[in-house]
């Protein structure tokens, strides 16, 4: 039992204290079978949980295992619920709250990256400015004509967000983002 609960008249009132919204990154290892993603996102919509970002791909081909990375926001009680609700889906092998794991290891956050393809169209000074800023953000040009660039940018979500917002006045026409992929720091796997 949590020792701080011992003296409290009711733990319920302790829960009320930490009613602040937190953002957590969950890693969910699932059987790659038909409908598994529908089960996961159906759980979120059916129970009214938030999905800020969701990424999924098969990560272990021989075992047919996929890894779903979900960024979600809620009170600590809701986040705990989400973890347990996910865990009781039959094809789910393991649910890890990477944000909690990072805290336990005294780290700020888990390693999180996303990739965006950003199309910017324009000519003249705006075009040059877009190219200069792309270099400053270490974005790679993967397609270009005299009238446009497509940048590939990788990084934390806030870096990608910042890059996109800077490109807006310079002729931003299209963005495609992967959502967050995340792992823990250190040698251990989940």
């Amino acid at each position: 039992m949590n020792p701080q609960n011992l003296s409290a008249p009711s733990a319920y009132f302790l829960a009320e204290v930490s009613n602040e919204q937190e953002t957590h990154t969950l890693s969910v290892v699932v059987d790659n079978e038909p409908g598994v993603l529908a089960r996961v996102i159906g759980l979120f919509s059916g129970r009214g949980y938030n999905i800020d970002s969701l990424t999924v791909s098969e990560t272990e081909h021989e075992k047919h295992l996929s890894r779903i990375t979900i960024v979600t926001t809620g009170t600590p009680m809701i986040i705990e619920q989400i973890r347990h609700q996910l865990d009781r889906l039959v094809p789910v092998h393991k649910v890890t709250d990477l944000t909690v794991e990072a805290k336990i290891a005294s780290q700020d956050k888990p390693l999180e990256r996303e990739l965006a393809l950003v199309k910017v169209a324009g000519t003249g000074e705006k075009r040059l400015e877009a190219l200069r800023l792309g270099e400053a953000f270490r974005a790679t040009v993967i397609d270009a004509t005299t009238e446009h660039f497509v940048f590939e940018i990788t990084g934390r979500t806030n870096k990608v967000e910042q890059f996109i917002s800077i490109m807006k006045p310079l002729g931003l026409t299209e963005v495609s983002r992967t959502g967050v992929a995340a792992v823990q720091r250190g040698p251990e796997g989940i």
Binding site: A11, Y12, A15, E80, Q81, H84
Partner: peptide, 24 residues
């Protein structure tokens, strides 16, 4: 709800724990 109590919850389903009422 039971304002002066400590609560023990025995359940086979972990998602039932702390879903509605935080238990000790």
């Amino acid at each position: 709800f039971a304002p002066n109590s400590r609560k023990i919850h025995i359940d086979i389903d972990p998602s039932s724990i702390n879903k509605i009422v935080k238990v000790d």
